[in-house]
Amino acid sequence: MIKLEFEHRQAGHCENGVTSNLLNYHQYKISEPMVFGIGAGLFFSYLPFMKMQHAPTTTFRVWPGMIFDRLTKELGIQTVILKFRDPRESMTKLNEVLDQGYPVGLQVGTYNLTFFPPEYRMHYNMHNMVVYGYDHETYFVSDTLMEKLVEISYEDLMRVRYAKGTFAPMGRMYYPTYVPKEINLKPAIINGIYKTANNMVGVPFFPLIGVKGIRYLARQMRKWEKKLGPEKASYYLGQVLRMEEEVGTAGAGFRFIYGAFLDEASRVLNQEWLKELSIEMGENANKWREFSYYGSRNCKKRGKADQSYDFLADMLMDCADREEKIFKKLAKIK
């Protein structure tokens, strides 16, 4: 039996939380917003051609796994990232790594996750959690979404690690092995902000990414009711809101976390203007919350629109304008 001394801390977003908790185990304290900012996790894209649960995908974050990769590269932390073809082999390797005394981050699908709240148990393959020990057939799990530490059986763990569908995890496991003693955060923060700003306002031509993506979504939204009928339109809207509020975003599609990061960055870098931008970002995040508040009313009435889609689209346009202003300023960071 192996049970490592792992401190469980809840987090708004699973991958940030896992990364932050894993580094915390290696005696390196880093907050969740900091992980998110340096990993350049903020993003927006609207992909009408990629359907998820019968509605177009909207994403508010970068590809799964990218935050951990970018953060550890920026900070010079040595890591191991593995994928396996054979499920049994992946479980043996997991046991081996735990025996060596490293807690391991896993990418899993949520459908068969037994300890998960039932309402979340859709097929969603981008969830992350930490396994910090095992006892025969039982694995000890720290999941940042859950209040308490939880357990899962061998069979179930194998099943969730080999969930199929979009972004199939393929038994992906990752863990840091060595954290340098002296870490200089400043260049990492600047790089992170620069990358995010570039993703949001610097992508040329392609209209579905970043601020342009938000505007595109708003323009499409105006047509939804006419094109799809009231029921489907409200479901499409619901899908946007679920992506914005539900899938571990800590509210407003990560805008709160990013604002908190800018706040922290202004203190580390001693740049006062970042503080101002963090306030602007917070106000922008509150606007997104307002959007989801009004939007969720449309989803409730089942067909009858409470707020017109034009009104909601105007709110999105407003958010896009605010974000364009913020990220154009952030792109000039030195």
Binding site: Q10, A11, G12, P117, E119, T144, L145, M146, E147, A250, G251, F256, I257, G259, A260, D263, S278, I279, G282, E283, A285, N286
Partner: peptide, 21 residues
């Protein structure tokens, strides 16, 4: 749905950023 508490962030102009479970 009321058996698991989650962490949420919020922002207020006076108080700044805060977390609540």
């Amino acid at each position: 749905y009321h058996y698991n508490r989650e962490l949420f962030y919020s922002f207020d102009k006076e108080k700044g950023y805060s977390q609540r479970v």
